[in-house]
């Protein structure tokens, strides 16, 4: 899992997909997931996957690295597919294509859209408190991972980590995470104070406005619509 890498792709690359609004890309994902759910034919699913890979290319993203995030879905769907003995090749192929296509559509969304923009849309669908907590999760992740990373480095440098000593690793990892919990608690107190000082009244401001919709939104909507249309036809 490399949230910081994904974050970098979403913020620092320019393309038609990056310029499109989060709303249109979420609609694209919904259309692709709908295709995955309704389709039992490998042709439209393969078409959807190819079109999504082309979209990744058009989005100036590192294709191999981005597709590697779908490796998890590929791996488990492949095992499931291979376990279907006696049903021919079509069934297993459909299973793999469904899993990978859905995963690639989600990965395309998060590698072209900064998380706060996704949260801004979610804020209109989910309870505000939930979305606020998700935003804090996203922000805190980078702070805490940085600190735990540095502590793990210290642990390794000072001989606190050994690949063959699981008991020692567990003990030291427990202390590091325990320290992380305490730091997280203190961080949350500081964050709570900061939020109330800044006038937090139960909703973090997230900038979604209909004006963010532009001509660039046609592209993801077109991709999603074509994928669904091919599956339906």
């Amino acid at each position: 899992m490399d949230i910081s890498f994904i974050d970098n792709l979403a913020y620092n690359i320019d393309s038609v997909m990056h310029r499109a609004s989060a709303l249109s890309k979420i609609i694209m994902v919904i259309l692709v997931i709908t295709t995955v759910i309704i389709s039992a034919n490998p042709v439209p699913l393969a078409f959807a996957l190819i079109l999504l890979i082309l979209t990744i290319l058009v989005s100036n993203l590192p294709v191999a690295r981005v597709l590697s995030f779908a490796g998890y879905a590929f791996f488990f769907s492949l095992i499931f597919a291979l376990s279907q003995v006696g049903g021919g090749i079509i069934g297993p192929l459909v299973i793999v294509l469904k899993a990978v296509t859905a995963a690639v559509s989600l990965i395309l969304l998060i590698t072209t859209t900064p998380y706060p923009q996704v949260f801004a849309i979610l804020q209109r669908m989910l309870p505000v408190v939930l979305v606020d907590a998700m935003l804090v999760t996203y922000r805190s992740f980078f702070i805490i991972i940085g600190q735990i990373d540095s502590r793990l480095s210290v642990m390794r440098m000072r001989g606190g980590y050994s690949p063959l000593s699981i008991v020692k690793n567990l003990g030291n990892t427990g202390r590091i995470i325990g320290h992380g919990v305490i730091h997280a608690w203190e961080l949350s107190e500081a964050m709570q104070d900061a939020m109330f000082v800044r006038g937090y009244k139960g909703k973090l401001p997230l900038a979604f406005s209909w004006s963010s919709i532009s001509g660039y939104d046609i592209f993801p909507l077109l991709v999603g619509s074509v994928i669904l249309a091919v599956a339906v036809i």
Binding site: M1, I3, V129, D132, A133, M134, L135, V136, T137, Y138, R139, S140, F141, I144, I145, I148, P163, L164, S165, I166, N169, L170, T173, I177, G180, V181, A184, W185, L187, S188, E189, M191, Q192, M195
Partner: peptide, 22 residues
Amino acid sequence: IPLLGIVAALMLIGQSVPLGFI
């Protein structure tokens, strides 16, 4: 909310760190 978000972040981190050779 800050504590909720931060604990969720800790869980995310915990789920991304493999432990030793297992």
